[in-house]
Amino acid sequence: EDEVKKIVKRLIENGVDDEQIKEIVKRQGVDERIVDKVLKELK
């Protein structure tokens, strides 16, 4: 989960929008619920 957080944070800093972040992270095989949780925490 910490790995996911790092990735998502980097994507947000690069101006990637939420939908794209979800797609990218899902392609890495991460559960969507984890992605949603991380996005909420970082906003």
Rank of each mutant, 00 (worst) to 15 (best):
K9Y: 09
E13G: 07
N14L: 15
G29V: 03
D17P: 15
E41P: 00
V8E: 00
R33A: 14
E19A: 13
G29N: 05
E41M: 10
V16L: 15
V16Y: 15
V16T: 07
V16M: 15
E23Q: 12
K26I: 14
E41W: 09
R33P: 04
Q28G: 09
V30T: 04
E23M: 12
I21Y: 00
D31T: 07
R33T: 11
I24E: 04
E1V: 12
K9F: 08
K43I: 07
G15Y: 04
I34M: 12
V38H: 02
V16C: 09
L42H: 03
G29R: 03
R10G: 13
E41Q: 11
K22L: 11
K9H: 08
V25F: 15
E3F: 13
I24H: 05
E23F: 08
K37S: 06
G15E: 03
L42R: 02
D31M: 06
E23D: 10
D17F: 06
Q28D: 06
G29K: 03
E19H: 09
D31A: 10
V30N: 03
V8A: 03
R10Y: 15
E3Y: 14
L42P: 01
R33G: 10
R10H: 14
I21Q: 00
K6L: 13
L42I: 10
D18T: 12
L11I: 01
G29F: 04
K43E: 07
Q20F: 07
E23I: 13
K26S: 11
D18N: 09
D36H: 06
I34W: 07
L11Y: 04
L42E: 03
G15D: 04
I21A: 02
R33W: 15
L39T: 02
E19G: 08
L39C: 02
K37R: 13
I24C: 03
V4T: 04
L39M: 08
E1A: 08
D31C: 03
D17Y: 06
V8M: 08
K26A: 12
D18C: 06
L39K: 02
V25E: 01
L11D: 00
V35D: 00
I21F: 01
K37Y: 06
V8Q: 00
I24P: 00
G15K: 05
L42Q: 03
I21L: 04
G29S: 03
L11K: 00
R27W: 06
L42T: 04
V38S: 02
K37G: 04
V38W: 11
K22C: 02
E19F: 10
K5D: 02
E1N: 08
K40R: 14
D36N: 11
V25A: 08
G29P: 02
Q20I: 12
K40E: 11
I12H: 08
R10A: 15
D17N: 13
D17W: 06
K37F: 06
D36A: 12
K9S: 09
V16Q: 06
N14R: 14
E1L: 14
R33H: 12
V8G: 00
E13A: 14
K40T: 09
